[in-house]
C-alpha cells in the first residue's frame, strides 16, 4: 500500500521536473540551430522552427511533448538529425549502464572491505595508512585519475588500450578512474558506520555471550553498519550512470554522459528533457529501492505498517 502511494507520488514529481527542464533550457539564450548554416535566410530558419514546432508558445510545446510522452516518445533530436531521443538513449544507455555497474562494483568491492578494515584496526598504524588512502581517493577527481592512469598504464606501460570501448581490457581503466572516488567515499561511510555500530550495547551483549569476532562483525554488526552506504548508493548509482561525462569523454566511450552535457550546451531541447527525465526516474526509483532495503536491513525502522 505504502509502495503504491510512493509510486503514485512519483508521477507529479516527474511532471514538475520535466516542466522545469523544459522551461529552463528554453530560457538560456541561443537556439539549437545557431551553429550550423550561419547565413541561413530567415525563411529557412522559420521553416526549421516550424518543422520542430519551436515557433509555438512554450505551453503548447509542453502539451505536445506530454502527449508524445504518453506514447513513450521523447521527440526527435534537434542536433542528431534522423535520430529520436529514444534512439540515442537506446544506444547510449547500455554502455553507460555497463560502465556504471562496473564502477559501482569496483567501488563497493574496494570501499566496503577497506572501511571495515579501518574500523576494526582503529588507532593502529595500518588503519592510518588505509584511512589516508581512502581520503586521498576522495580528493582526486576522475579527471585527474583518468589522465594519470592513461599516462602510466596505457602510454608508458602499454598494458591497457588508451581509449575506446571494445573489450574487457578496454573497460579496466575507465572503471578504475570512475570508481575510485566513490570507493573512497564508501570506505569512509563504512568505517564511520562500523565504528558507531560497534559501540552499541547489543554488540557488547553478543560479545558477552561468546560470539566469535568474525561472526560478530559480519553477522551482527555489518547489517547495521552498512546502512549509510546503502542510503548513499542510490544517488551514487544515478551519478555514476549520468555523471560519467569526464570518463566517457576521456576514453571516447559512446555513453550517455556525453549527450547529457553536450545536449545542454547545444540547446538540443528534446534531448535535454528526455535525459533529465531518465536521470530523475533512475534517481527516484533507486531512492525508493534504498528505502525498501532499509526496512529489510534494519528491523528498527517501523515507520511503515503495511
Amino acid at each position: 500500500m505504502h509502495l503504491l502511494r510512493r509510486l503514485a507520488l512519483l508521477v507529479p514529481l516527474l511532471l514538475v521536473i520535466s516542466l522545469l527542464a523544459f522551461v529552463l533550457v528554453r530560457l538560456a539564450p541561443g537556439g539549437p540551430f545557431d551553429r550550423e548554416r550561419k547565413p541561413a535566410s530567415p525563411e529557412i530558419e522559420r521553416a526549421l522552427l516550424a518543422r520542430y514546432h519551436l515557433d509555438e508558445p512554450v505551453w503548447q510545446q509542453y502539451l505536445r511533448f506530454l502527449s508524445g510522452l504518453a506514447c513513450g516518445d521523447f521527440g526527435a533530436s534537434l542536433k542528431y538529425r534522423n535520430h529520436t531521443v529514444t534512439d540515442v538513449i537506446a544506444q547510449g544507455l547500455p554502455v553507460s549502464l555497463t560502465l556504471g555497474a562496473l564502477a559501482f562494483s569496483f567501488a563497493l568491492g574496494v570501499g566496503v572491505p577497506a572501511g571495515v578494515f579501518a574500523a576494526v584496526r582503529r588507532g593502529q598504524r595500518s588503519e592510518y595508512a588505509v584511512s589516508f588512502l581512502t581520503l586521498l581517493a576522495v580528493c582526486v577527481p576522475a579527471f585527474v585519475v583518468g589522465p594519470i592512469l592513461v599516462m602510466t598504464f596505457a602510454v608508458q606501460g602499454r598494458l591497457f588500450p588508451v581509449a575506446l570501448w571494445q573489450g574487457p581490457l578496454h573497460a579496466v581503466l575507465p572503471t578504475v578512474s570512475l570508481g575510485l572516488y566513490f570507493a573512497g567515499k564508501i570506505a569512509r561511510l563504512m568505517r564511520e558506520g562500523m565504528i558507531q555500530t560497534l559501540a552499541l550495547p547489543f554488540i557488547q551483549t553478543a560479545r558477552a555471550k561468546g560470539v566469535s569476532e568474525t561472526a560478530l562483525l559480519f553477522r551482527h554488526a555489518f547489517r547495521l553498519a552498512v546502512l549509510p552506504v546503502v542510503s548513499y548508493s542510490g544517488p551514487l548509482l544515478a551519478d555514476l550512470l549520468t555523471g560519467s561525462f569526464v570518463v566517457e569523454n576521456l576514453f571516447q566511450i559512446p555513453g550517455l554522459g556525453v549527450f547529457m552535457v553536450n545536449s545542454a550546451l547545444s540547446r538540443d531541447y528534446p534531448m535535454v528533457v528526455g535525459l533529465v527525465l531518465l536521470y530523475a526516474v533512475i534517481l527516484l526509483v533507486l531512492n525508493l529501492l534504498v528505502d525498501l532495503s532499509y526496512r529489510k536491513l534494519d528491523p528498527r525502522v517501523t515507520a511503515w505498517k503495511p
Binding site: 539564450p29 555523471g243 536521470y279
Partner: peptide, 21 residues
Amino acid sequence: DVLYALPSIIFVIVLMTTLQG
C-alpha cells in the same frame, strides 16, 4: 526534492550560458 532529482550540471550550464550572453 525536485531540485535534488534534477541533474545539477544542467542547472549550471543554463545559468552560466545565460549569464555569458
